[in-house]
C-alpha cells in the first residue's frame, strides 16, 4: 500500500554549523504535526543533525559558501528527510557506514554519525559519487501512532 504525502518542505541553506540546529528544528517541527512521542522526535533531531553535520564537515570541508538542501516529506505515520550536498562525495559508502570509521580523527570525530543515523531511523539510504556529492535519506516511522 502506498501512502499519500500529507505535507512537505524544501529548504536550502549555507553549510554553516549554525544551521545544524536550524535543520533539526525545521524537520522536527514538521514531524510534530503528527504528534509523535518526545522520544521519537529526539531520534529524528539527532539523525538530522548528524546528516547535516556530515555535509558541513566532510562533504564541504567547512566551506560555508556551499549549500545544503533538505527536503522533509510527511506521510500518515512517518517522515522522510533527505539531505543533499554537492560536495566531495564518499568513495566507499559501505566503509563510511561502519561504526567508528572516520577520516578525521584529529578533530575528535567519533566516526559514529552513520551508526547513530541508522539506529535512530527506520531506513537509511546513502547515495554518493566522488566530487559530485551525497544524498542521505532518513525514514523515521512514528510507531507510537500505531498506523500503517
Amino acid at each position: 500500500m502506498t501512502m499519500d504525502r500529507t505535507n512537505y518542505m524544501r529548504v536550502v541553506f549555507p553549510a554553516k554549523s549554525e544551521n545544524e540546529s536550524l535543520a533539526r528544528i525545521l524537520a522536527s517541527s514538521m514531524a510534530a504535526q503528527l504528534d509523535p512521542t518526545l522520544e521519537e522526535i529526539s531520534d529524528l533531531r539527532t539523525a538530522v543533525s548528524e546528516a547535516v553535520t556530515n555535509c558541513i564537515i566532510h562533504g564541504y570541508k567547512l566551506d560555508s559558501s556551499k549549500e545544503i538542501e533538505m527536503i522533509c516529506e510527511l506521510y500518515e505515520n512517518y517522515i522522510v528527510v533527505t539531505v543533499v550536498d554537492q560536495g566531495c562525495g564518499i568513495a566507499d559508502v559501505q566503509l563510511a557506514r561502519k561504526p567508528l570509521y572516520t577520516t578525521d580523527p584529529e578533530n575528535e570525530r567519533s566516526g559514529m554519525g552513520f551508526t547513530i543515523m541508522e539506529s535512530f531511523s527506520d531506513e537509511l539510504d546513502v547515495e554518493s559519487a566522488v566530487n559530485k556529492g551525497t544524498i542521505v535519506r532518513i525514514k523515521k516511522i512514528f510507531h507510537s501512532l500505531g498506523k500503517g
Binding site: 540546529s21 533539526r24 533531531r45 539527532t46 543533525s49 548528524e50 553535520t53 578533530n107 575528535e108 570525530r109 567519533s110 559514529m112 554519525g113 547513530i116
Partner: peptide, 13 residues
C-alpha cells in the same frame, strides 16, 4: 536538551 555525536568527541577527547 540536545546532543549528537559531537558529544562523544568532546568526552573522548
Amino acid at each position: 536538551t540536545f546532543m549528537d555525536s559531537a558529544g562523544i568527541g568532546v568526552l573522548m577527547g
